[in-house]
Design a protein around this nucleic acid. Structure first.
Lengths: 132, 132
DNA sequence: CGGGATCCCGCCTGATACTG
DNA sequence: CAGTATCAGGCGGGATCCCG
């Protein structure tokens, strides 16, 4: 948990002052990563939040084997997914969202919701900006 | 919202039963951008959500002039900030969060909150992972 | 003061090949 | 099947110079 606790829900100062901005930025960088969110969200919608390597590879078209591996490693390192290796032939490895990983889905949904509501405005602003 | 309901279940990019995945990813990429969030959050905590170029440069330590300019341009293009030039000598330019920009603070705060609560766990997971 | 224009390097990432 | 190893291209971003 955190120590300082001046919780003002929407006060911008809270956003900037209260918490280490580097940590926030680090998280957002992770989240902003193309493959990370696709993987987290893919796992989120899979039954049991669990899938093996090849399943994930198929469920995230366009991802290279390399990036799939690297991204999964990072997610594992961050404690967002678990990696379980089964000593079989051929080998089988399953990845699963942790409780921590699932908890991230909630704030993530907040952003997704924001996109649903405001994305058209953003696109409109963009095309308007570009036409000048 | 409006997009055709051709919900491709197998579309990897399809986000958890939500809208346009590319848009979500695009937003997250923007948000994940180091300087973008720092600028948005800086503006958020400034009185009137308004500041001039040099103020922002000072309030976001480490940002280069180039990135400040580029990032502000992008934010303006996305309709998140406005840019107002005053025909003076020396020139003065002020940037201000738009209503749209401010609305983004709310979901953003959700992530910040998540960091406050879970960041230690993430760090713990990381060091634990690294020590193996 | 608030940029625009260039140069340039590091790292991210994709493609390809190999392996337990 | 689930990776690792290696090479190469792109580009994000800093540093620098200049201008209205």
């Amino acid at each position: 948990m955190n120590n300082t606790n001046k919780t003002k829900q929407l006060d911008p100062a809270y956003v900037c002052g209260h918490k280490d901005p580097a940590a926030v930025r680090e998280l957002l960088t992770k989240i902003g990563d193309k493959w990370s969110i696709f993987l987290v969200l893919s796992l989120a919608k899979i039954h049991g939040n669990r899938a093996r390597f090849s399943e994930l590879e198929r469920s995230v078209p366009g991802i290279s084997q390399r990036m799939l591996t690297l991204t999964l490693r990072n997610l594992e390192r961050d404690g967002l997914v678990t990696r379980e290796v089964f000593p079989e032939v051929p080998p089988r490895v399953e990845y699963e969202l942790t409780v921590l990983g699932k908890s991230l889905l909630r704030p993530l949904d907040g952003l997704v919701e924001w996109v649903s509501v405001n994305w058209e405005d953003v696109k409109k602003a963009q095309s308007n900006f570009d036409s000048k």
